[in-house]
Amino acid sequence: MSSSSAPPDMQPPQMRDGASAGPPIDADRPTGGRLRLVMDRLVTGAVSAVSVAVALLTVSLVVALLVRSLPVLGLQSLAEMITGTVWHPLQGKFGFWPFIVGTLWVTVLAMLLATPACILTAIYLAEYAATGLRAVVRPMIDVLAGIPSVVYGLFGVLVIVPLVRDRLAPAAAEHLSGVPLLAPGKVSTGYCVLAAAVVLALMVTPVIISVAEEVLRGVSPGVREASLSLGATRWETVKHVSFRIAMPGLIAAVVLGFARAFGETMAVLMVAGNVAQLPGSLFDPAYPLPALIANNYGEMMSIPLYDSALMLGALILLVVVLIFNLLAELVLIWARRRSSQ
């Protein structure tokens, strides 16, 4: 499409008089150059200001929680409170250990239950399922992710708690007595570590599946076909090739689920039993940290230092989540390096 092939009257005016190499005439020069520059500076400034403000939000959150928990920190040492096992606000005893342990028990068990099932589902959807089936299953999983956590809590109260109380706990008492952690200490009400973990596992399932499937589908078809073309089966290809390439992403998926589970409040609060004691078995009640804060903040605030102690609880929760995020970041860097080898 060279311009020489166009009829003369279709050509730009400056071509016609042969002045194409000269500068454009002043009248044609666009105006408002200054205004545009000012606008550009304004937008640059606004964008950076907003970004800094968002980053400052995290810092201010930590600072605010720290300031509000100073009163209780002035009376007892942090180490004493974190490792303390007695929670008795009226006597000024704020031991956080049972809550920290309760949170860890519930979250770790939930992840142990959820991760294998989620990864296998993601593998099935990404590598095996026919297009039609995937088109049906995928949206259903996405809907699960959007269900409010209070609904999961209700499901736990109505289905999981009775199941644990009437079936699992009696069965465990009969067959597993003497096994540490698994044998019920006394008659279980069903509101316990196990019920909370099952509910949490259900909640994180859609998050993990969704991310893991996306990651597995991101593995280039070419590499997969290279493996198949050497006579590998589908499973061998998944195991040696897709899995290896997708590993950093799969770790990220699990970490994302973990972060979601760790801070989850409502659903856990509804089924964990909320007794401030160290759980001795899966069938004992637990009192996770988020549930403690949600249940008590705004109540019984006349007790001295109670408010400050809860703020410290929130700070501990925040710091633990930040540490987890940091660890996850390190694991990701390590896994990326390893998967490229």
């Binding site: 590499v223 198949l228 006579g231 998967s339």
Partner: peptide
């Protein structure tokens, strides 16, 4: 599987497996 072993494939873009040179050949 044995058909694919008999018919080696060389694709348009080189598709190395995510492992060492040695492991690629012995895969």
């Amino acid at each position: 599987m044995s058909l694919r072993r008999k018919m080696g494939l060389l694709s348009q873009k080189p598709q190395v497996l995510p492992m060492s040179i040695f492991d690629n050949v012995t895969y």
